[in-house]
């Protein structure tokens, strides 16, 4: 394959995340260091790095979502799940993320690649319940 992004996307689509060994393999194929591949992956929110958690929750914290109420949502999510942003356990990992390109429908978040838009406190609670997170 010629393009790194295309290559990574294939893996992401197949497994839902990119593992350490995927990075090493890509590093061989593209003659880049693992650090550089890691750097690339980390700057695209659509990619998930390897994780042992079942659910990857990403809440957008870029300016538009942030000013549309995303800031409070992050705080609420922390309270509901009783964790801090950036922490993970077996069940879930919760992260804030950069713009997902859905600003008009902000604030937004994703759970395992599924997009949730126009969030508010009520909606967030409901989603967490549906996803059996609380």
């Amino acid at each position: 394959m010629k393009f790194l992004l295309e290559y990574l996307q294939k893996i992401q689509n197949k497994n839902g995340f990119i593992s350490e060994s995927d990075i090493l393999e890509a590093s061989k194929q593209f003659q880049l260091s693992p650090a550089e591949i890691f750097e690339t992956i980390s700057s695209y929110e659509k990619f998930n790095l390897w994780t042992t958690s079942e659910k990857v929750i990403k809440i957008c914290d870029s300016p538009i979502c942030h000013s549309k109420g995303g800031e409070n949502l992050i705080k609420l999510a922390e309270k509901l799940l009783n964790t801090k942003i950036g922490t993970y356990n077996k069940k879930f990992i919760i992260e804030s993320c950069q713009c997902l390109g859905e600003c008009d429908k902000g604030p937004v978040m994703t759970i395992n690649d599924e997009l949730f838009t126009n969030l508010n406190e009520e909606k967030l609670k409901q989603i967490f319940k549906d996803q059996k997170l609380i």
């Binding site: 990075i23 693992p34 890691f38 750097e39 980390s42 700057s43 695209y44 993320c97 950069q98």
Partner: peptide, 26 residues
């Protein structure tokens, strides 16, 4: 680390104002 030593033990992570300098693969 990258250009002169070709060791690549450190790198950037993230984008926009979430960018940090960190260690390879975190």
């Amino acid at each position: 680390c990258r250009d002169i030593q070709t060791v690549n033990a450190i790198c950037y992570k993230g984008r926009a104002n979430a960018t940090v300098v960190t260690k390879s693969l975190g």
